[in-house]
C-alpha cells in the first residue's frame, strides 16, 4: 500500500486537465487577440508574478517577513547590465549567473539576521533594500552609473530570432513562470516544502521535532533571492534601461502586499494578486493620484473580511494509492 498527497477534490480539480488545457490555449493565443499595450501589461504582470512567487517562498511558505525583496531583484538586474555591457556575456547565460549572484547576496546578507522574528526582521530587510538602492545611486567603482543607471543593449536571441516585441517577451516571461510553477509545485509537497511550513507554523516545535530551522530559513531566503535575481535579467533585457528608481522600498511593499493579498503560501493567490496589483492601476489610470489610497483601503478591507487571502492555500490530504487501509 502506498500513500500519496492530493489536494482536496473540487470541480476545477476534477476537470483540471480541461481547465489547464484551455488556459494554455488562451494564454498562447492572447498576443493575437489583444493590442500590444495589453500584451505589455501582461509582460509586467508576469514579471511581478515571478517576483511574487519568489517572495512567496520567503513570506508565504516560511513566514519570514521580508519587505526588501527588490534589493535582490536589483542585484540581479545590475549584474546583468554590468556583465553584459562590459564583458559581453550572453544574456541566456546571465539568467543563472544573476540568479547565483543574488542568491549569494541573499545568503551572505541574511545569515546574521535570520534568527530575528517578525517585525524585527521586517525592519532589517527594509534597511537592506535602502542600503542596496543608495549604494547603486552612489555609483561604487563607477560600475552602476549612479542615478541614471545603466543601459542594456544586448537582446535575447533564440535560433536567430531576436526577442524584442511585447509578444516575444510575453512568451519568454510566461514560459519562465510555467517552469517555476512546476518546480515550486514539486517543492511544496516535498520534504523541503514541508519543513518550511513547519517553521512557519511553530519554529520552536519544528526545531524540537528535528528540523534544522536555520537551514530551512536560509535555504528559503537564498532560493527566493536567487529567483528574484534571475528575474532581474529578464527585466533588464525588457526595459533596456535600469536605474535605482525601479527598486524602491515602495515596490518592495507592493510585492509584499501581493503575497499577503493572494494568501500566504498560495501559488494561484500570488498570480491573482499580482494581476490585481498591476492591472487594476492600469484600469484606474484616471485616478492615479488616489492609487495608494485605494491600495491602503483594499488592504484594510481584506484584513477585516478575508485575512486568509484571495485564494487561500489548502492543505494536501492523504490518499491511498492502492485500496483502502482502514
Amino acid at each position: 500500500m502506498r500513500l500519496e498527497f492530493a489536494k482536496p477534490a473540487s470541480f476545477i480539480r476534477a476537470h483540471s486537465a480541461w481547465f489547464i488545457g484551455a488556459l494554455i490555449v488562451l494564454a498562447a493565443a492572447l498576443p493575437l487577440l489583444v493590442s500590444d499595450y495589453w500584451v505589455d501589461v501582461c509582460v509586467f504582470w508576469g514579471i511581478n508574478v515571478l517576483l511574487g512567487l519568489s517572495l512567496n517562498i520567503i513570506v508565504g511558505e516560511v513566514g519570514l517577513f521580508n519587505m526588501g525583496h527588490m534589493a535582490f531583484f536589483a542585484i540581479g538586474a545590475y549584474t546583468t547590465a554590468i556583465l553584459s555591457e562590459r564583458f559581453g556575456v550572453n544574456l541566456w547565460l546571465l539568467i543563472p549567473v544573476s540568479g547565483l549572484a543574488a542568491a549569494g547576496a541573499g545568503y551572505v546578507l541574511t545569515g546574521p539576521i535570520i534568527h530575528l522574528r517578525g517585525d524585527y526582521l521586517l525592519m532589517v530587510t527594509i534597511g537592506l533594500n535602502e542600503m542596496i538602492r543608495i549604494s547603486l545611486i552612489n555609483n561604487p567603482f563607477a560600475l552602476t552609473g549612479g542615478p541614471n543607471g545603466l543601459i542594456v543593449m544586448d537582446q535575447f536571441r533564440i535560433f536567430g530570432h531576436v526577442i524584442q516585441s511585447p509578444a516575444d517577451f510575453y512568451y519568454l516571461v510566461w514560459a519562465a513562470i510555467a517552469l517555476l510553477l512546476f518546480c515550486l509545485g514539486r517543492l511544496q509537497r516535498s520534504r523541503v516544502g514541508r519543513a518550511w511550513n513547519y517553521v512557519r507554523e511553530d519554529p520552536i516545535a519544528a526545531e524540537a521535532t528535528g528540523i534544522n530551522t536555520r537551514w530551512a530559513k536560509v535555504l528559503a531566503f537564498t532560493l527566493g533571492a536567487g529567483i528574484a535575481g534571475a528575474t532581474g535579467t529578464i527585466f533588464a533585457a525588457k526595459m533596456m534601461v535600469i536605474s535605482p528608481d525601479s527598486f524602491t522600498f515602495m515596490e518592495s511593499v507592493i510585492l509584499f502586499c501581493i503575497v499577503i493579498l493572494g494568501g500566504m503560501g498560495s501559488i494561484p493567490g500570488v498570480i491573482l494578486a499580482s494581476g490585481a496589483m498591476l492591472v487594476l492601476p492600469e484600469l484606474l489610470r484616471n485616478f492615479a493620484q488616489y492609487r495608494m489610497l485605494l491600495f491602503g483601503l483594499a488592504m484594510v478591507v481584506m484584513m477585516i473580511f478575508r485575512p486568509q487571502g484571495l485564494w487561500p492555500s489548502r492543505r494536501w490530504t492523504t490518499r491511498l494509492k492502492e485500496g483502502d487501509g482502514e
Binding site: N197, E201, D202, I204, A205, R315, W316, T317
Partner: peptide
Amino acid sequence: RLFENLTCF
C-alpha cells in the same frame, strides 16, 4: 505545540 494549520498526517 502542534502545527495547528497542518493536517495530523
